[in-house]
Simulated assay, not measured.
Amino acid sequence: MFAEERQSLIVDLVSSSSRVTVSDLASRFDVTPETVRRDLDSLEGARRLRRVHGGAVAFDRQSTSELSLEERQTQNHDEKKRIAAAALTMIPKSQTGSILLDAGTTTELLADLLVDWAPAAPDAELLVITNAVPIATKLAGNEAVQVYILGGRVRGLTRAVVGPSTIGQIDSLRPDIAFVGANGVHAEFGFSTPDAVESAVKTAIVRSARRVVALADSTKLDKETLIRFAALGDVDVLITDALPSDELATALAAADVEVVIA
């Protein structure tokens, strides 16, 4: 097999599986690992994939890449709606409670479901704390919900309120449940996000809540982005839309994370 043909097949494998390893490619094509590494170097130079430790990933899977809020709202919308609906069932309607909603497209879909929220008992109340401007705006019209928006700098790309003052406010709170989004959920790396300031806020959210529920559609599973904001064991529940891979499922079970498939 010519090198060009082998490299074309490698690109196809990366595109279909998102990640390939040197050892697997060497076995598949019956070549030495050194030959595979040269192929990967050449393909990275042509911007057809990106080298990582032990192999390669699709070129668009950059650890710091991040879409705008508007772009993310159109992706995996049905799956995110199912995840939001599953998350809604975890919010009690018969007692007074507090939840913290992280900024994100799936948490915003959960907020959409709370727009018409009403208590099951006349003396029950719900306090929603959020660092997301769109979420606060949506829920402000529901008189049955108390809305508290955290202060700080608004990050334009995600409409999230971030910064030291935001973290300081979160550290003074102890909400019953925090719903947090993630850009990556990985067996070894844990929960991650591309941006440092949002990662710091997410870490504070995870640290503050009595119960932490991560909302992540299946495209985020087995992915690593730049900054880890929580280890797997820091989260109580993961709601997603498909079964995790065997490796991730084993790691989640070992960390005592409940997995809910929406």
Score class of each variant (00 low, 15 high):
Ala3Gly: 01
Glu5Thr: 13
Leu9Thr: 10
Asp12His: 11
Val14Arg: 08
Val14Trp: 07
Ser16Gly: 01
Ser17Asn: 12
Ser18Phe: 08
Arg19Lys: 14
Val20Gln: 13
Thr21Val: 02
Thr21His: 04
Val22Gly: 05
Val22Gln: 11
Val31Tyr: 06
Val36Arg: 05
Arg37Leu: 13
Arg38Ser: 04
Asp39Cys: 02
Asp39Asn: 04
Asp39Trp: 01
Leu43Pro: 05
Leu43His: 07
Glu44Trp: 10
Ala46Val: 11
Ala46His: 09
Ala46Gly: 13
Ala46Glu: 15
Arg48Gln: 15
Arg50Leu: 12
Val52Ala: 03
His53Ile: 03
Gly54Ile: 03
Gly55Glu: 09
Gly55Lys: 10
Ala56Ile: 07
Val57Met: 11
Ala58Trp: 09
Phe59Arg: 15
Asp60Arg: 08
Gln62Trp: 03
Ser63Val: 14
Ser65His: 09
Leu67Trp: 01
Ser68Ala: 04
Leu69Ile: 05
Leu69Tyr: 07
Glu71Ser: 08
Arg72Ser: 02
Gln75Phe: 03
Gln75Asn: 02
Asn76Lys: 03
His77Ser: 13
His77Ile: 11
Arg82Gln: 10
Ile83Thr: 09
Leu88Glu: 15
Leu88Phe: 15
Thr89Arg: 15
Met90Lys: 13
Lys93Met: 11
Ser94Leu: 08
Ser98Asp: 12
Leu100Ile: 14
Ala103Ile: 00
Ala103Trp: 00
Ala103Leu: 00
Gly104Trp: 01
Thr105Val: 02
Thr106Asn: 08
Thr106Phe: 03
Leu109Glu: 13
Leu109Ser: 08
Asp112Val: 09
Leu114Asn: 05
Leu114Met: 06
Pro119Cys: 08
Asp123Ser: 11
Glu125Thr: 11
Glu125Arg: 15
Leu127Asn: 12
Val128Asp: 07
Thr130Ala: 11
Asn131Pro: 01
Ala132Glu: 02
Val133Phe: 00
Leu139Ile: 03
Gly141His: 13
Glu143Asn: 07
Ala144Asn: 15
Ala144Thr: 12
Ile149Tyr: 06
Val154Thr: 07
Arg155Val: 00
Leu157Cys: 00
Ala160Met: 00
Ala160Arg: 00
Val161Lys: 00
Gly163Trp: 11
Ser165Gly: 04
Ile167His: 10
Ile167Arg: 13
Gly168Pro: 01
Ile170Asp: 07
Asp171Gly: 09
Ser172Gln: 12
Ile177Ser: 04
Ala178Thr: 02
Phe179Val: 01
Phe179Ile: 04
Val180Asn: 02
Gly181Trp: 02
Gly184Arg: 11
Val185Leu: 09
Phe189Leu: 12
Phe191Leu: 15
Ser192Ala: 12
Pro194Leu: 04
Asp195Ala: 05
Asp195Asn: 09
Asp195Ile: 00
Ser199Trp: 02
Ala200Met: 14
Val201Lys: 01
Lys202Ser: 11
Lys202Pro: 05
Lys202Ala: 07
Thr203Phe: 06
Ala204His: 03
Ala204Tyr: 01
Ile205Ser: 07
Val206Thr: 09
Arg207Gln: 14
Arg210Ser: 09
Leu215Ile: 02
Thr219Tyr: 04
Glu224Met: 12
Thr225Gly: 05
Arg228Phe: 04
Arg228Gln: 12
Arg228Met: 14
Phe229Met: 07
Phe229Ser: 07
Ala231Trp: 05
Leu232Ser: 12
Asp236Arg: 08
Thr240Ala: 01
Leu243Pro: 02
Asp246Trp: 03
Asp246Ser: 08
Ala249Arg: 13
Leu252Glu: 02
Ala255Cys: 06
Asp256Phe: 03
Val257Leu: 11
Glu258Gln: 15
Val259Arg: 06
Val260Cys: 10
